[in-house]
Design a protein around this nucleic acid. Structure first.
Length: 327
DNA sequence: CTACTCCGTGGTCATGACTG
DNA sequence: CAGTCATGACCACGGAGTAG
């Protein structure tokens, strides 16, 4: 800015006025400054700007499990819609489901003075954030609630989603319905399992632990789990898959073995309607998670100090064929 | 250890030219 | 001579580096 001032033959303050389109600058002077700015390629330093009038970097830090996973990139997209509208910027980074990595990312974001954090938790204890929260950084959690602190969170209706999936399979006449889920420590797995159990119980179906497979973190593990289930003396006639990776594994087994098994998956699947047997899924708009969380964060930064909110977004069943296979 | 300086920017106040 | 307008001088923001 001082280079521009010197080259244009005006003071720093005049350049500042022109850059910020403040009134009270003669048109001729403003034109000279604009021309000089273009010549020198000057760009306002927003870090210094934030320094001058209190902290507000205009940045949101977004911690997700994996930026390459379509579920999380949809969340990032939703966040971006909100930050773009507000002239802000979101920076995304992957925790890789590692609590320590999450902590590092939070520290790095805070060192760069982000205004707020949006976090899909990987850690089970978020008390490490208390000093930051006390100093005014705001945080909203996404998809899973925080551990050991009270804070805003935007979730999916996991229990309700599991209920509509299992109710649908029961309505098709199934009595032996299996559940294959991710690591049980993950909040969404636990909630979906809870919905599965509750719905079976309400329908008067006896629980059968041999029909539940947990700790299934990828499609390969899902394939093995399905083969185990099919090898049972009394195999299931239907299966509820706890997430999209598991659904993919189940579909592979069904395509290869030709076994008849009704399937409803949690999470929609890209091209899920174009498969030989189109997949019936519990779907939702992942971008809504990001949008809702970013809006809530912006609301907090605007001074909303009401008690922490828990927003639960709805899920819906999309009937396509795989869930309508009869026993 | 304290005190000062610096970074880039913008708010406040002062200054000087001009108008009616 | 008071009022308006365009412009500039000065300083502080938070933290790091440095001089004494």
């Amino acid at each position: 800015m001082s280079d521009v001032a010197a080259a244009a033959g005006v003071s720093l303050k005049t350049v500042s006025r022109v850059v910020n389109e403040e009134p009270g600058v003669r048109r001729e002077t403003a034109e000279i400054v604009h021309r000089t700015i273009a010549q020198l390629g000057f760009r306002r330093n927003d870090l210094a700007r934030a320094l001058r009038h209190g902290r507000r970097s205009g940045l949101f830090g977004l911690v997700i499990e994996d930026v390459s996973n379509p579920f999380y990139s949809a969340i990032a997209r939703g966040v971006e819609e909100v930050t773009r509208r507000r002239g802000m910027l979101a920076i995304a980074a992957s925790s890789d489901e590692d609590g320590e990595r999450e902590r590092d990312l939070v520290r790095l974001f805070c060192e760069r003075r982000v205004d707020g954090l949006l976090i899909v938790p990987a850690s089970a204890d978020h008390r490490y954030m208390l000093p930051e929260l006390r100093s005014g950084t705001r945080v909203v959690f996404i998809d899973r609630p925080p551990g050991k602190i009270d804070a805003d969170v935007v979730l999916l209706d996991n229990v309700g989603g599991a209920r509509i999936a299992v109710e649908h399979l029961i309505a098709q006449g199934h009595r032996r319905i299996a559940f294959v889920g991710d690591v049980s420590g993950i909040f969404t797995t636990a909630e979906r399992l809870r919905g599965y159990r509750k719905t079976l119980a309400r329908a008067g179906l006896p629980p059968d632990p041999s029909l539940i497979r947990l700790g299934v973190h990828d499609a390969g593990a899902a394939e093995r789990a399905v083969y185990e289930l099919l090898a049972l003396p009394e195999p299931p006639t239907a299966l509820f898959a706890g997430n999209n990776r598991i659904t993919v594994g189940v579909l592979r087994v069904l395509a290869r073995s030709g076994f008849r098994l009704a399937l409803v998956g949690f999470d929609d699947l890209e091209l899920g309607e174009m498969l030989a047997v189109p997949v019936t899924v519990v779907a939702y708009d992942a971008a809504d998670l990001g949008r809702g969380a970013a809006e809530l964060l912006a609301q907090r930064l605007a001074g909303d100090d009401s008690p922490p909110q828990r927003i639960v977004l709805p899920t819906a069943l999309i009937v396509r064929g795989s869930g309508e296979v009869k026993p």
